[in-house]
Design a protein around this nucleic acid. Sequence first.
DNA 1: TTCGTTATCGCAACTCAGTTGCACAAATTG
DNA 2: CAATTTGTGCAACTGAGTTGCGATAACGAA
Lengths: 140, 140
Amino acid sequence: MMSNTYQSTAEELIRKEGGRATEGRVRILALLLAEEQAITHREIEERLPGQQPDRVTLYRVLQWLADRGLIHKITSDDRVWRFHVNHAAYSRQHAHFKCTKCAKVVCLEDLPSGRHMTLPTGYQFQTIELTVKGLCAQCV
Amino acid sequence: MMSNTYQSTAEELIRKEGGRATEGRVRILALLLAEEQAITHREIEERLPGQQPDRVTLYRVLQWLADRGLIHKITSDDRVWRFHVNHAAYSRQHAHFKCTKCAKVVCLEDLPSGRHMTLPTGYQFQTIELTVKGLCAQCV
DNA sequence: TTCGTTATCGCAACTCAGTTGCACAAATTG
DNA sequence: CAATTTGTGCAACTGAGTTGCGATAACGAA
């Protein structure tokens, strides 16, 4: 069951961003705070106890949280966004791991020193996106 | 206009895989052989001169070519697959570059030595997917 | 060259993630 | 409390990709 701490932390974080701490926002952010992995829109819906907010509202809340840097979106090869809270360690660029069997996604702390990749002449570096694929501990 | 060389190379490659060298397959593969960048399903449709094959056929041809290793699919954050021929340099793992302005995608030859990324204990490495983002020479 | 097999194509209809527009509801402010 | 802003819920839409199935056309054998 969800600890009350996450609820109040979520509320606090949302207020700090100058947004209204509505029930939906608080519940969604609290759920993400309690979650280890990066999870999809679908998974969030499934894990929200009781009455779920409207699909569209969920998308909008997630976008709102991402815009304010409270969470981040992760691309994947299954064309589905996954969402994860921005803990201190993950607040900036980091790599992701995706299990090729169970599709679980977790954040990895360090980004290898690939920052100096040689680009074609005239190209300008901005960011790097790195996903390591393999089997997670449960699927090995 | 498309060189005849690509047509015959395409036909040869398809035959070598034991498939029927149908008009659609040959035209699509020839187009990809002539193409520098990794392009989307949509872009392929647009660039096919004259009568286009059915949408579904195009998807199936691309899947068929990818299954046989003649081309490879590239993930992106816009939820659209891009396709690129497997030249010798790109036949195995390599990084990709995506322009954040014009969405152009090109293949980069080298993959940085990120193979020794530290994974959580019990996790097993398989492959690495790396996309560098920035501005291409035309968009700088 | 024709013929039979069967790989491949084309169509229609579908799935699924995500988006947009708009009226309504709930906060917040004066 | 009225006015304004902010967020929600519904319906309808978009766009990529998929599935089922009957029709078509490669290609090897005769």
